[in-house]
């Protein structure tokens, strides 16, 4: 394997392997502190990102490696009209592994096709964001003890939310999974995801607009932000952005062992009062994301014979 473009590039066995590596990193950080010494991660971020970029950088530093960056796409070769393919070939001469974020869907795939070093997709437009999903999976694994027998509520923007699509893809491979899809009519899960993933794998699901009524059934509530950048029309964004706001009042409907997740950043869809609720796991997700990125960097560098 020399690329992780989509979460399904990792089969359940490889996910399990990364989770076990991440758990070992958490337990024995010193064991991993120098494994990537002398190796360089190139972070190519063609659109703004705070947490994903810093998470990748922190991950590489904690493995003892270095990071080289393209800090601003507006002042880089991309602004001069260089293709993604040429950037990939060029960066392959400098680094050992690439993490790329790009606003165009499929940009990470083009990078992987043209790079001679491993490539990790750090988000390609509204398409895929596999390392967010690995963070989600480690969080579910650590908080719920595994992936089987879970009812997962997905709430908010299920139409454009790439993390939602990836999580559905990843979780559909486990036993006795149910989904509750909570969204306004305009932001419902696309029919191709329902058909190609849920119906194809006989995964039970229900669609609702009512968060409160769905809450008592859930083991996991995955909240999402309505993303301004995914709308062509500002009016639609303004009308839909406050569809769901999770408050302590609404949390009363949830079971004591339900967990609340969110890929972050949040705007106002989870009120800050919920942060102190022990069921709120979204900042744990951030930390888990770093560990899983460490595990992925290790896996890809090992398989490429670079460490």
């Amino acid at each position: 394997m020399n690329r992780v473009i989509d979460i399904v590039d990792l089969n359940p066995k490889e996910i399990e392997e990364c989770i076990q590596t991440a758990l070992d990193i958490i337990k024995n950080p010193d064991k991993y502190a120098h494994v990537c010494e002398g190796k360089k991660l190139a972070t190519l971020f063609f659109e703004p990102s705070t947490r994903t970029r810093m998470s990748f950088e922190a991950a590489m530093y904690e493995l003892g490696g270095h990071v080289i960056s393209m800090t601003d796409a507006n002042t880089s070769s991309a602004a001069k009209g260089e293709s993604v393919a040429d950037t990939a070939k060029t960066v392959s001469c400098y680094a050992d592994i690439i993490a790329i974020r790009h606003p165009k869907e499929g940009a990470a795939y083009v990078t992987a096709q043209n790079a001679s070093i491993p490539v990790i997709n750090a988000g390609d437009g509204g398409h895929c964001h596999p390392t967010q999903t690995t963070a989600d999976l480690l969080t579910i694994y650590r908080e719920k003890g595994g992936f089987d027998n879970l009812t997962i509520g997905l709430c908010g923007d299920l139409k454009f939310g790439r993390t939602v699509h990836s999580l559905i893809n990843a979780m559909s491979r486990y036993k006795n999974i149910k989904f509750v899809l909570i969204s306004p009519e305009e932001l419902k899960l696309p029919s191709y995801v329902k058909k190609d993933v849920l119906q194809k794998n006989n995964i039970p699901y229900e669609q609702t607009t009512d968060l409160e009524r769905a809450m008592p059934k859930l083991d996991v509530l995955y909240m999402t932000r309505v993303q301004r950048e995914r709308f062509f029309n500002e009016e639609d964004y303004l009308r839909l952005k406050d569809s769901y706001i999770l408050t302590p009042q609404k949390m009363k409907y949830a079971r004591d062992d339900m967990i609340v997740m969110h890929p972050l950043p949040r705007v106002n869809e989870i009120s800050v009062e919920v942060d102190t609720d022990p069921r709120a796991c979204y900042f744990k997700q951030v930390l888990n994301g770093k560990y899983m990125r460490m595990a992925l960097i290790l896996k890809l560098l090992k398989e490429a014979g670079r460490i």
Binding site: S83, A85, P103, K104, E105, Y109, V110, G125
Partner: peptide, 13 residues
């Protein structure tokens, strides 16, 4: 036909 697809902008793809 997806205006957000990389194939819309990338040269010689």
């Amino acid at each position: 036909k997806n205006p957000r697809c990389i194939s819309q902008t990338e040269q010689e793809i």
